[in-house]
C-alpha cells in the first residue's frame, strides 16, 4: 500500500485522539462553545433521523389508507361533536378570561402571561434508565428555544433542553434529573415533583407528615420559577405512605400526560400579546395542516 503504516506511530496517534477527547469533554462540560458546531452537525445527521422515523410513518400511512369508510364516518362524527363542544366551551372561556382580567385589574395583580403555542411532531423517543428524552420536529427555525414547556392534550410532558435548527430535544418530567414546581389542585399546597427514571412514576419527596395530601389528588404546575406556566395538570398522586420517625412522607405520583405515546406535542412560549387561547390553538393546528 502507498499509505505508510508504522506500528510505532499507532500509539502516538491514539494518544493524540485521547488527548483531543479529554479536551472536548472538559470544554463541552464547562462552556457553551460547542453548541454551534453541534447544531451544524445535527443537520448532517438529519437523514438518519428521517430514515429511522420512516417505519412509523409508513405504518401510519397504511393504516390511514386501509381504514374503512364507515370508520372514517364515525371518527368524523365524533370529531365534529367534539369540535362543537369545545367551541362552546371556548366561548365561555373567553368570557371568563375577560372577567378574570377585570378582576385581576381590580386586585392590581399582574396580567397572566399569554403563551404562544407551537404544534410539533414526535420524531424519536429515547428512554433508558438515566435519560428520558424525546425528539420533536420543530427547532430554532420555527422559533423554539431552550427552556420552553412542552405539553400534550392531557398535561405537562417536559421541557426543551436543546434546540437544534430543525428539531429539538425535550427532557421528560420522569427523567431522574428533572424536578418541577407543582401545586396540589385541591388544597393549593406547593411542592416539587421529581422524576424517577421510570416512565409511570414520579416522586414527591418534600412534604411534611402533617401535609394535607391524599391518593387521587391532582398536581398542577404552579408557575413558580417561571419555566412552566401555572395551571397545567402534571400528575396524579398514587400512594401516600407515612413512615414513623421520618420527617417527610413517601409520596408517589403518576404522570397524566402520555409521555412517550403522544404523536404530537405542544410547545409553549411566553409572549405578552393577549389573544384567545383556543383561537391560537386552532391557528397552530391550521398552520400544521398547511405545512403537511
Amino acid at each position: 500500500m502507498a499509505n505508510p503504516f508504522r506500528r510505532s506511530s499507532q500509539w502516538s496517534q491514539f494518544g493524540l485522539v485521547a488527548f483531543f477527547c479529554v479536551a472536548l469533554m472538559i470544554v463541552d462540560g464547562r462552556t457553551h462553545w460547542l453548541d454551534t458546531p453541534r447544531n451544524v452537525l445535527s443537520i448532517a445527521v438529519t437523514p438518519v433521523q428521517m430514515l429511522a422515523s420512516m417505519p412509523s410513518r409508513v405504518e401510519g400511512w397504511i393504516t390511514g389508507q386501509l381504514a374503512a369508510e364507515p370508520d372514517i364516518k364515525i371518527a368524523y362524527d365524533n370529531l365534529r361533536n367534539e369540535y362543537f363542544q369545545l367551541k362552546s366551551e371556548a366561548l365561555l372561556l373567553r368570557a371568563l378570561q375577560e372577567e378574570n382580567q377585570a378582576l385581576r385589574a381590580l386586585l392590581d395583580a399582574s396580567e397572566r402571561l399569554q403563551e404562544k403555542i407551537t404544534l410539533a411532531e414526535l420524531m424519536n423517543v429515547q428512554i433508558d434508565r438515566d435519560n428520558h428524552s424525546i425528539l420533536v420536529g420543530k427547532g430554532i427555525r420555527h422559533g423554539i428555544y431552550g427552556g420552553q414547556a412542552v405539553i400534550d392534550d392531557q398535561g405537562v410532558i417536559g421541557q426543551v433542553i436543546d434546540a437544534m435548527p430543525f428539531n429539538s430535544s425535550v427532557m421528560l418530567i420522569t427523567d431522574p434529573g428533572h424536578a418541577m414546581p407543582v401545586q396540589v389542585q385541591r388544597t393549593g399546597l406547593r411542592t416539587l415533583v421529581y422524576g424517577t427514571g421510570s416512565v409511570s412514576l414520579l416522586r414527591v419527596p418534600f412534604l411534611n407528615q402533617n401535609s394535607d395530601i391524599q391518593e387521587g389528588d391532582v398536581l398542577v404546575s404552579s408557575g413558580i420559577g417561571g419555566r412552566f406556566p401555572n395551571g397545567y395538570p402534571v400528575a396524579e398522586v398514587t400512594s401516600v405512605k407515612i413512615i414513623e420517625d421520618e420527617s417527610f412522607m413517601q409520596i408517589t405520583a403518576r404522570p397524566v400526560a402520555k409521555l412517550d405515546r403522544s404523536n404530537h406535542v405542544l410547545l409553549l412560549a411566553r409572549e405578552q400579546k393577549a389573544q384567545n387561547t383556543s383561537q391560537r390553538l386552532l391557528d397552530a393546528l391550521v398552520e400544521e395542516e398547511d405545512t403537511q
Binding site: 491514539f14 485522539v17 485521547a18 477527547c21 479529554v22 479536551a23 472536548l24 469533554m25 470544554v27 463541552d28 462540560g29 460547542l34 453541534r38 452537525l41 445535527s42 448532517a44 445527521v45 438518519v48 433521523q49 429515547q126 428524552s133 433542553i161 436543546d162 430535544s169
Partner: peptide, 21 residues
C-alpha cells in the same frame, strides 16, 4: 463517536474516546 453524540444529544468526547479506543 462524535456523530453519535450529536445524534443522541450527549456531551462531546466520551463516545468518540470509547470508539477510538
Amino acid at each position: 463517536g462524535t456523530l453519535m453524540e450529536v445524534l443522541f444529544v450527549r456531551s462531546f468526547g466520551v463516545m468518540g474516546f470509547g470508539l477510538a479506543t
